[in-house]
Each structure stands twice: as structure tokens, then as C-alpha cells.
Design a protein around this nucleic acid. Structure first.
Lengths: 220, 220, 220, 220
DNA sequence: GATGAATGAGTATTCATTCAT
DNA sequence: AATGAATGAATACTCATTCAT
């Protein structure tokens, strides 16, 4: 007795808080289960290959429960996509922020990208796969990535007072295309190549495609 | 008996058994109309946004007629995709065959690709777009392209007796990813960049990402 | 042999006409079956008590077939209602057109109404019943009837140069309310009263409620 | 032990066992809120346009609470309807009880009806509207009203030793039909006519339709 | 008593596919 | 070969109702 007696404050809200939480916690748990199930199923079968029933069933819930948590199928897809884009963004931004110099920065970016993909395999497969239907999500993820690459490239060009030889817009599309394809391909079966090789390849191509003078050395 | 003999012109056509050809020609015409309609509609609305009724109606045919010509919806999609891949392949092969040297070859390839995309906008949008559901077509088009790039690369490496610095498999995935993205992006609105700039950008990146020594110039 | 040989004309369109008709006739027959089933079921169970599946099944058709013929449940309801209103209108108009004098006209109207109700029991039960949800049909049937009564009444008042003692709008609402209730009640079980008694009662009330001087006998 | 004796005021209330009444009062309050919400919502959107969630939410209660107070959706609808019918009945009975003579009685009835409708707009809209699905309430309200009119009429006929010219059953249906329609129409927008005009119209029609000799004056 | 998350049967609707004509 | 009406399984979504807390 007497051990860790509830404080007066705690005693004053005897049910309200815990009770409300019990339901709220259960609700949140269901929502999370639905999200997790959706991630797994979308990654495996694509947006069109999955029904709301599938998701609910996979989450151990009744069909109708899905609609207590999400507007409809597109809504859960969008939520997953947007959340992931946000995380990826932070992750890449953090990585490049600390990098000094172009080489370091590009490599850090590639590493962040690959690391994130590894840690979020399901979601990245959704995001970087064929079915990541731009119509389901308002904004195309890759377009956003391309835009952020392009912006950085322009900054650098301005700083160095260089006229970029290649159109930055086209170049950024090429880079994200490369990223998406390589990462989707790799995630489908990570034994296809060691992680380091992926990072290195992405880094090299991006760097060489970027640099002035990079194409002169081919004497052939 | 001699009545309604096919005209000389009709006989000149490669169609077999001229006597039966009235029916056969009509059949072929329907089939072609279905294919053309499917290309247009898939390009515009994607595989899942088009019904077999839509295709038949657009072709001016009855709903049931579709199934006289194609097994099912995936079959017509697959046929379009495979036919296009075949054409693209010939086109690219022809272009690179005549090119001397690496630079010329890579540029010829890029030109062939972009030219083909321009001339077959509908189909390429299908092939290189999000909805080109790998599950609908048995073999992924881009995988095939990647394989062919990889093969050429290995050949060249063997010929030059060079150990490629970058993994050819990863590299080829990167290249087709880049292609697909840039071309799909460009086809969505070709006024985004002049054709030549697309060709040049693709050529440069591929070349620089490829060459030994390409990364040395950035001494940082 | 030789008996009723098809005429040359008939022979000249051997398939086209009959063939097209066969499908069209079948289509029309299905549509009619759906309409008939809908009438019966709506009359029995009301708009909300009937599903599109019920209608299709009752018509001996598959669930999906319903949608080949009608937009949705409200559409078939609306079609039934509007068609019936149209017929009723013609019927009543025809009856009153031939009637000379007020008495005759009112009686003819009542007779037409009751006769029509008898001949179209199902549909009238729908139209004059509780469930004839004005939201399902754009315009309320009874409102239309009221408006037409009101118009006639105003005409007559103008002709006779009389200031109507009772508000024609209110009066017309009262009359259609009376009609709808009495007819719906009677149709629910026509043995409740002989047809003639219904006609007579409706006629009397309408006439007496209408006439100038009708209220004089209560001198109070 | 005399502690916390209910005040005299509380004791005057008809609630039993004052000690338990904190809970009981709260319970009754919830029930009342549900009833009030249901009335408002049913009047606005009809029986089928309102969900039990809607009612609970409008009442500021949780969804499940609804079922602590009512068997199901039809039960609350029925309760509202029956309670209202009872009130209306008393109201009309009280009004006619004090009236001397036929005219006065009919007018008093009309006044009571219209007054009640005005004071209970929500509920009367439910009761007298299309959606007052007779299947939801066991007994049709209007049937009850008709029966009571009919009874009075028969009484009077017996007293006066008159053979009624019109079938009292049919007549009573006509009258309630008229009432329901006019009142529903008026309540939908009371600015349509001044209250007095409604009362007067209803009175006149009922009186004239009722009286022997009422139809003689039309000499035409 | 109240809560509110969960249930699951019910309903509308679509669409790939078949088949009698 | 073509037609096009019909099919019916699949799917999204709703909502009255239950029950553990």
C-alpha cells in the first residue's frame, strides 16, 4: 500500500482521461493497423490491385471500419504517399545540409535516399513504382523531387557564375527518373546488388552528368 | 465464276486468298480500328481508366466485337506494348548499327528514341507512363531495354578489355529510368523543351556516366 | 408451299430490319418488364422499400441489367411518375373539355380521376401515396394538379366577374389533398365503397366548396 | 435520515424517488434532447434522410446513447407521432367541446388544428408530410383523425335523424386529406397565406360539403 | 448511464465477358 | 463477322445496431 499512490491531480480526473484514452488509443491503433496493411498491400499489388476490404481484412477489422478512419481508398493512399514524401524530404535535406562541397553533397543525398528506401521498403515501392498514380495523389512525388534538384542546381550555377551546359529542368527529370527506376528495381530484390554499389552508381552518374567538362575526356 | 473478281490493285496486296479477302480485309480493318482506339484511349486515360466498351465504341464497333479480336483487355494492352517495343527495338538497333564510335552510337540511340517517341506519342505515353503496369504485360519493357543496354556495354567492355567501374546492371537500370522519365515528361507537353535539347541531355548523361575517367575531372 | 411467300420487298431486307428489331424488341421488352415490376413493387412497398435488385429480380433479369435501362432507382421512379401524370392530365383534360357547365365539368373531372385510378391502380397508389417523395420526382404531382385547378378557377372567376370568396390557392391545395387521400384510401381496398359513391362525394364537396352562395345556408 | 431532503418544489414534480432523481433527471434530459433533435431533423429531412447518428450528434450525445432510450429508429419516430396525435386529439377535442352548434364546432376545430400546427410546426410537418410512412407508425394518424370525424358526424346524423347524403366514411377521408395537404403546404412556408385564411377556407369547405341542402344553391 | 469504436449486412453501381441472333 | 442485350461477380460505401470500457 501507499506505494505510488495516485496524486491528487490524477485522482481528480478518475475516469475522464483514462477512459477517453482507452477508446482513443484503440482508435489510433486501428488506424495504424489499416495504414500498415495498406502499405504492405499497395507495395505488393499496386493501388488498383487492392480493395478496401482487403485492407480491412488484412488489418483484422471489418469492412466498414475502414471508412471510420479514411474517406476512401484514394485518401489512405494519398496519406501514405504524402507522409512518406515528407519524411523523405526531411531525410534528404538533413543529409545534404551537413555536406561540404558538391561531391559530398551528392553522395550524401544518394546515401540518404538509398538508406531511406531500405528502411521504408514498402512505402518506397509504392512511391517509386508504376502505380504511384499522379491522379491519386495531388502532386507527383517525383515532380517534387525534380523541382528540388533543379532549384539546387540553379543556385549552384548562379554561385559559380556558370551557364549550365545542360537544361536544368531536363536534367532534373533525368536524375529522378534514374533514382526511381534504380531504387524500385533494387527494392524488388535487394540481393541484386550491394547497397554501396547502388549509392556509388547513383552518385557517379549524377556527378558526371552535372559537371562542366565532364564530357570532354572521351577522346575515342 | 469470274463474277466480282478482285481488282488488280486488291490482288497486289499481300493478303492471301484474294477470294476470301473481302471478309478478311474487313476483319483486319476492325482489328486495326480497335488497336488505334485503344492506343488513343490508353494514352489519355491509362489502362484502368478505359473499358472495353469505350474502345469498341471509339472504334465504331459493338461491345462484343472486341472479343472477336482480342482475348481480353490485357491482351490488347499487351499487344500494343509488345508491338511497340519491337518497333522501338528495330528503330534503335538500326540507328546504332550505322554509328561509328561510342559517341556517335550513343547519340544515334538517343535520337532514335526521341524520334520514335515523337512519332508514336500515344503508344510511348502508355509504355513509359505510370500505368504501364508490369503485371499487364508479361515482360517489363524497360527491363528489356535495360538488358539490351547492359549487353552492349558488356560487349564493349570485353572488347576494350576494361573492367567497368560501375555495375553494368545498375547502370543500365539507371539509364532506362532516365529515358523513361524524361520522355514521358516531355511527351506530356513537348513544348517543354526543344527536341534537340532532350537528345543532347540524354546523350551527355549517358556518355559521361559511362566513361572511365569521367569522374576524375572533379578534383574538388 | 407458296403460301404467303415473303414479298420481294421483305426479301430485300432479309436480316437488317428483323435482326435489328429482334434486339430492339428484346430490349424494349426488358425495359417494359422492369417498369411493370417497379410499378407493382413501388405500389406495394414504397420507394424506399424496394431495391434495384428487387426490381430486376421481379422482372426476371439480372441485377446489372437494370442499369442498362435506367440511370438509377430515382430515374425509374420519376419516369413512372411523370408518364402517369401525363396520362392523368390528358385523361382529365379530355373529360372536362367535353363538359358543359360547372356541375358537369366537375363531375366529369371526378369521374375521369376515379376511372383513371381504377385502371392504373398500381401507379396511382405510388403517385398519391405517402412515399411519392417530392424529392425523388422533380415536381410534386399534386402541386401540378393544384396549379391546374387553381388556373381553371381563376379563369372562371374572371369570366363571371366574381371576386372569389375563398383563396384559390388554398382551395386548390385542399381539393387535391382531398382527392389524393380519398383515392389512395379507396385503392387500398376498393370494396370500401362503390365507385359511384366516391365520384359523387368528391363532386359534391368540390362543388359546394366552390360556389358563391354555397355557404349562405349557414346563416349564423 | 432527513439529509438533503428534496425541496418542496422538487417534491411537487411528478418524478418518483427524489433521491435517485439526479440520475433519473439526467436520463430524462438526454431522452428529451434526443426527441427534440429527432423532431427537428425528421421535419427537415424526412424519416429516411436522417440517421440515428445524426439524431444523437444533434443532441450532443454519443451514437450508442440513442439505443439506451429508444428501441430503434422507427420507435422514436413512432413515439413522436403518437405523442403528437394525442396532443392534437386533446387540443381538438377541447376546442370542439366548448362549441355550440355545427358551425361553431367546425370552425373551432379548424382553429384548433391550425393553431396546433403553428405551435408544433416540426412535428406536424412530420405527421402530415409525404414521408409519414404509415409502415413506420402502426396506425396511420390520418386514419385516426378520419375515424373521429366520422364518429362525430354519425352522432350528429343520429341526433338530427337525418340520413346523411354523403357517405360519412368517404367524407371523413376527404376532410382529413384536405387538412393534411393544406396544413403541410402552409407549414412549408407560412407566408403563403395568413393564418386566418387557412382557417376560413378549411371551415367553409367542410361546412358546405357537409350540410344538407348545401348543393341545392347551384341552380345552373 | 454514457461512450464511441466496431460490426457486417445491405445497397447501389460498374464492367469484363458471354451468347443468341 | 458483327451485334448488343444480358450477365453476375466484384467493389465501394452506408448505417442501424452492439458492446466493451
Amino acid at each position: 500500500m501507499g506505494v505510488t499512490q495516485p496524486s491528487r491531480a490524477a485522482r481528480r480526473l478518475p475516469r475522464p482521461r483514462p477512459r477517453a484514452s482507452a477508446a482513443a488509443r484503440s482508435r489510433a491503433a486501428s488506424r495504424d493497423r489499416l495504414l500498415a496493411s495498406a502499405k504492405a498491400l499497395f507495395a505488393e499489388r499496386g493501388l488498383h490491385g487492392v480493395t478496401t476490404h482487403d485492407i480491412a481484412e488484412h488489418a483484422g477489422l471489418a469492412a466498414g471500419t475502414f471508412y471510420l478512419h479514411f474517406e476512401d481508398k484514394r485518401a489512405i493512399f494519398r496519406e501514405i504517399a504524402l507522409e512518406t514524401v515528407g519524411q523523405l524530404r526531411s531525410c534528404v535535406d538533413a543529409a545534404t545540409a551537413g555536406a561540404a562541397g558538391l561531391d559530398a553533397s551528392v553522395r550524401a543525398q544518394a546515401e540518404a535516399l538509398v538508406g531511406f528506401a531500405e528502411a521504408n521498403r514498402d512505402v518506397m515501392q509504392i512511391l517509386f513504382s508504376a502505380d504511384a498514380d499522379a491522379s491519386a495523389i495531388e502532386s507527383d512525388v517525383l515532380d517534387w523531387l525534380a523541382a528540388s534538384i533543379e532549384a539546387r542546381r540553379r543556385q549552384r550555377a548562379a554561385a559559380n557564375d556558370l551557364e549550365p551546359e545542360l537544361d536544368p529542368v531536363v536534367l532534373s527529370q533525368a536524375i529522378v527518373g534514374m533514382w526511381a527506376r534504380v531504387i524500385a528495381w533494387w527494392l524488388r530484390d535487394p540481393r541484386r546488388a550491394p547497397r554501396e554499389r547502388i549509392v556509388r552508381t547513383l552518385t557517379r552518374i549524377q556527378l558526371s552528368g552535372t559537371q562542366p567538362g565532364a564530357q570532354s575526356p572521351n577522346p575515342q
